[in-house]
Design a protein around this nucleic acid. Sequence first.
DNA 1: AAACCGGGGAT
DNA 2: ATCCCAGGTTT
Length: 346
Amino acid sequence: MKNYKQNADFLYLGKALLAWYGIYGRDLPFRKTKDPYKIWICEIIFQQTRIQQGLDHYNKFIERFPDVASLAAAETDEVLLYWKGLGYYSRALNLQKAAVQIMTEFGGVFPDNYNDILSLRGVGPYTAAAVSSICFGMHIPAVDGNFYRVLSRVFADDTDISHSSSFAYFSELALRLMPPGEAGTFNEAVMDLGSEICRPRNPLCDQCPLQKDCRAFQLGRTAEFPVKTKKTAVKELKLTYYFVRFGNEILIRRRAEDHIWKKLYEFPDEVPVNLLPVVMETNTVYHKLSHRNLSIDFVDVFPEKRTEFEALAQAGSYQIVTLEQSLLHSFPKPLENYIAAQVARP
DNA sequence: AAACCGGGGAT
DNA sequence: ATCCCAGGTTT
């Protein structure tokens, strides 16, 4: 811990945050409950995901899977279907594993302490801290990206958040601000401040309850915090698919588990040789994402190849589904968009 | 410690 | 085009 923070009492900062939160805190659906199941679901959904993006998924997920038992009993495919479009699909797979874990290891009762919650699949230090503080009042800071930003700015602290040890560092720092008995509310308050006021770029310092105490603001250096030296490496990924269509039916299959989009569905990545010759549309749909290039060629199978088409499903390499049925499977977003475009096509 | 895992919005 | 979001798991 840096010298300037030694023996300091920063409790008044936490209290100022709570006062601000009482007035300006966001009104979100999961703020109305302390059901650990619901808080857990929302913490997982909003990992690396903006509130706006995941809100609809949260509401529909809770409606379909209202408790641990219903999630544990569900088919994995249906859980993935409700996760469609959120990304980081292992979160959904882990979610269900953890639900089963709660049924078998905890007798169907959601664990009520940090260590037991941490033992759940897909639950790390942040999520365990969030659930145990919000639902069970445990005095633990839930240190996420918002904490890094808010705390590093308030103290003009140049500790590099790229380093793994910075989690413990900022956790200890957060403890100095956290009012006793208010851990859950305090954690939510920091998240809201980080999201709405102490934003990554163009922070609204004039509306910040901590402005007069903020070292970075006083120095005019808010843009310099948090310090993050590690740069996110952009890896290029090229994917080629064929949209093999026979009338209103297409070929799909489940992806393997060893790469992105694990257990989701996809199209063939080659034209099955048995179906040749085929009519292939010359203009390739080229989908550009941030670090991915995806091309999809449209393939129209000749009517006399019906037997060969069905043989692909008999052999187990592919499933044959109608365009409408395909939308009931969990596809990666770009493939889902492509199907939707084909359904809409005249 | 570093790589890997998505999709989307803001700038 | 780049950054980053209520991070966790694997190597």
